[in-house]
């Protein structure tokens, strides 16, 4: 039976990605675990493995295509003896399963409405400060780098901060800029 290979989500927040590279071509035999493609997200490039044995019947999304939505069919795997010609080109990307509204309302739990404290919402930065739009991750990275540039005695050490670029990519590029003396990987502690 022909099976569609769908664009995978490589992290819980990934909605789309770039199909950076195909490592197989139509007609190739693949077995479970073989690397089929490289997928790029804003975070990293990751390898995508075959989950079943079969033959690459057709590649539906060319390499280099950007903004491929998660769950879009990207290739079709066929079994020995099948012909790729019988595969209809799938039209629309498959929808991500929607979270259904629960049928019954949850049992009401009696709670006193929390008292809203008065909050001063006036900005604590000078008027006219220029704003940039960024992610929390990049903001933290930039702040670390700024401190390290300003002060030679500032260094960073921790698990996966250097070569791995941070488990959550907060130190991406830091090792490259500041070198191994100031960016130190530690064992688990």
């Amino acid at each position: 039976m022909a099976t569609e290979i769908l664009m995978p989500a490589l992290s819980p927040t990934m909605e789309e990605g770039t199909l950076a590279k195909w490592l197989v071509k139509e007609g190739d035999t693949v077995s479970a675990g073989d690397i089929m493609a490289e997928i790029e997200t804003d975070k990293a490039t990751m390898e995508f493995e075959a989950v079943d044995d079969g033959i690459v019947g057709r590649i539906l999304v060319a390499e280099g295509t950007e903004s491929v939505k998660v769950n879009t069919p990207i290739a079709v795997i066929i079994e020995d003896g099948e012909s790729a010609d019988e595969i209809e080109a799938p039209a629309a990307p498959m929808a991500v399963p929607a979270v259904e509204e629960p049928a019954s309302a949850p049992e009401a739990v009696a709670y006193a409405a929390p008292v809203q404290p008065a909050v001063d919402r006036s900005p604590d930065y000078p008027a006219g400060t220029e704003m940039v739009s960024t992610t929390v991750r990049d903001a933290l990275r930039d702040a670390i780098a700024e401190e390290m540039r300003a002060d030679e005695t500032v260094f960073i050490m921790g698990e996966e901060v250097a070569e791995y670029q941070g488990a959550y990519k907060i130190t991406q590029g830091i090792l490259e800029e500041f070198g191994a003396r100031r960016v130190i990987d530690t064992p688990i502690t």
Binding site: L6, P8, A9, L10, P12, A32, G33, F48, E49, V51, D52, V70, N71, V96, P97
Partner: peptide
């Protein structure tokens, strides 16, 4: 585990998932 990896890729599994393969 291969199936779990596949379901993760389809967005059916959220959060952390460490495979034993």
């Amino acid at each position: 585990e291969e199936k779990a990896g596949q379901l993760y890729g389809m967005g059916l599994i959220g959060g952390f998932c460490h495979l034993y393969i």
